[in-house]
Design a protein around this nucleic acid. Structure first.
Lengths: 201, 201
DNA sequence: GTCTATAGGAAGATAGAC
DNA sequence: GTCTATCTTCCTATAGAC
């Protein structure tokens, strides 16, 4: 097995351990045990544990594990489309609560480490750009126009999703989470003008 | 010095250490060093480190360190009043970034610990009830009426503040944070009807 | 109650045989 | 490269003198 495969294997194992036991529980020993490799392997794949954690963070960011809007469904109104997108996203959240909890833990870990704060920023910017793409697609599909800069709208939604997700991780109140998602839709729609013509481009 | 004073002394020291070095850095040694007491003191004040952490969490929750609305200023319109309240709250956040970061870390710590999840829930409920009281006062002062149940409005705002704060801790973009606070005001106002009579009760 | 000294274990990292 | 055995350090917790 190549050294590079080994690295990804350990990164995946680390993520699994983190989901189960938290970031604090992801010791080098727990990680290699999860991967089924001897302890010594760790240090000829990674210079240090911090190097592994950095790669874990990059992997999670790249994977877009966190809550960000993606595909626009084929719906009539912007409201129906965005509502459906948010519901789809929310299913992902509720299916992998641990993974999302890990994301929050890693963000905070990054904020505490000198030099990793930039990674946390990249992570959060990633959500915004994803949402920008989404809203461009939504405008394209439904013809809505924006009253505010798209990056601002995207940021608003990313931030709300962040808060809603964290809240849900605490109390697991799905009903309230869905209600807040709907409120988020209303808020975004209040920042739009109706389509100039009712057709699509 | 009484045993009870010692406990609070250590709890305060723990909070200070956590602000500086994070929850992970708050070892028993670091805490007693911060408090200026010998290591042995720790274990005749607390049965274990977990017992201390629990008291730290309760202290922070009770103190309402986290973002929740409080006093209603004397303003003409609901918009001006709520905007001022949010700005006041935001000043507190920006003055103590570390303390707020600690709050997030502790929440996640609690979510990982068997039996402490209830404390995290209490913590988050606390923000909602604070906001409920605030909005009651706001209605009282300005005469606005609510289209949605007050607990829902309160929860919405608590969740948004949570997201906005976390986002700001990552990128420290004050301008964007303030813009999102304003959007939050608009959202809340869209859930109100204007006052029946323009005077106050 | 108070504090020193130390136990006992787990952590990250390495040395060195193969 | 691979893995075992070990080093060093730091942790929580306790034992026991005062």
């Amino acid at each position: 097995m190549s050294a590079d495969e080994r690295r990804t294997q350990l990164v995946e194992a680390a993520i699994q351990v983190m989901c189960r036991d938290g970031v604090a529980g992801a010791t080098t020993r727990a990680i290699v045990a999860e991967a089924g490799v001897p302890l010594g392997v760790f240090h000829y794949c990674f210079r240090s544990k911090e190097e592994l954690l950095q790669e874990v963070l990059e992997t999670i960011v790249g994977r877009g594990l966190h809550a960000a809007l993606s595909t626009v469904g084929r719906r009539r109104t912007p409201r129906a489309a965005m509502r459906a997108s948010l519901r789809a996203l929310w299913e992902v959240v509720e299916k992998n609560p641990e993974e999302h909890l890990v994301t929050y833990e890693l963000t905070q870990y990054a904020l505490r480490q000198q030099g990793l704060a930039a990674l946390a920023r990249r992570q959060y910017d990633h959500y915004v750009t994803s949402n920008v793409r989404y809203f461009e697609a939504l405008a394209d599909a439904t013809g809505v126009r924006w009253k505010k800069p798209l990056p601002f709208v995207a940021r608003l939604v990313a931030t709300q999703l962040d808060g809603i997700t964290l809240r849900w991780l605490v109390d697991r109140d799905t009903e309230q989470a869905l209600a807040m998602l709907d409120a988020c839709v209303d808020q975004v729609l209040s920042l739009t003008r109706p389509a100039r013509v009712t057709g699509r481009s």
